[in-house]
Design a protein around this nucleic acid. Sequence first.
DNA 1: CGTTAGTTTAAACGCTTGTTTAAACTACTT
DNA 2: AAGTAGTTTAAACAAGCGTTTAAACTAACG
Lengths: 209, 209
Amino acid sequence: MSTKNKILDAAESLFANKGFNGTSLREITGQADVNLAAVNYHFGSKKELIKAVMSRYMNELSPRLEGALRQVCEIESPSLIDVFSAFIDPLLSLNKFKDNGTSNFLQLLGRGYTDSQGFLRWFLTTQYPGVIDNFVLAVQKSYPELSAEEMFWRLHFTMGTVVFTMSSSDALIAIAKSDFDRELQISDVIRNVIPYVAAGVGAPMPLKR
Amino acid sequence: MSTKNKILDAAESLFANKGFNGTSLREITGQADVNLAAVNYHFGSKKELIKAVMSRYMNELSPRLEGALRQVCEIESPSLIDVFSAFIDPLLSLNKFKDNGTSNFLQLLGRGYTDSQGFLRWFLTTQYPGVIDNFVLAVQKSYPELSAEEMFWRLHFTMGTVVFTMSSSDALIAIAKSDFDRELQISDVIRNVIPYVAAGVGAPMPLKR
DNA sequence: CGTTAGTTTAAACGCTTGTTTAAACTACTT
DNA sequence: AAGTAGTTTAAACAAGCGTTTAAACTAACG
């Protein structure tokens, strides 16, 4: 395994578990069994390393996700459950791509929205706009009465639900184990959240005041 | 204004905007116009300062919130909209208690769940269990078919929606202004999120697989 | 074999972090 | 007026941070 990949792997799991700010380059290179200076040699800086970790996943995920969402748009009259279920397979495919891939990626996404004052949010929305566009199209097709303004709000609420849930999914899984004696996986968390966000986005249009 | 309160005020706004890890004691004491050592003298450590910032809000909020939720339980058959609407007044009352209080508090709550590996979650759930208990009771009364396990998940999803939305409420309000020419307040955001979370929590129980 | 480009290494850099120290200052009591 | 408890202050502390340097190593090519 190349030094570059050893760094990426170690950085990924540490970033996911402790956040970007909370993880030092010395922890990363220590876990990767690699010299400290290797990060700056191969990636230039810590910030570029963060981007590289995210890009590795996004390049794998975004074509699959766009494809799945386009497929939903071809259904006669898709439900919102259909729309959100389109995320399942692409997300779970990250587990074949890498051990704990799905979980790590979703946690990283959550970190990216709260750590680092949103520079990662900017990076993702500008580098991978196709995902969002196809998602909006799919929601419009399954709930045409939803106004653009209401859509805007509900998609942000949904983003919040998913990102927040996934960034603390480890803790949630642990609680589910101790309180309900359930051995859950990240895939169970994904399946659990779908009815919730589908119902939220599908809520009736509120009456104008 | 006492040194202690100057520190609390500065820490609160910096923590809300940059996170706990992302804010140094020197930034705090600088903004508070107070000597660096004053933090350790008055609070003992940075960790204790974080707790103190949160406690100041929780002590103000939790009795009002518990009262409002208990009132909901006395309604004949409360809707989930009733339950979540019970949060509006207590949360907005934080704005009278302190400038930007509502917004700061909700952002801090979000930080507490992602920064610092969840020690703040532990702190809040153990120190202020009454809020959660009354909230669960109210939801149970308005949706008795919801199992305890499903309730656990949906309440966490709701927490995510609210916390994430509020922590980025400034950005959302700005976008609503530029895209839809709407002049919104934090109270409008709160009212906007209520139908979403009410529908999410009220989603039909999924079929067992 | 010698050269060269690419990579790894140990050490140090300058800077920031949270915390501690001991002296200075303040205000109230005896 | 002297003493004392509480508070504020400047300075230093040890530790950790991201980054840089220059020397050592590796492997392939002419």
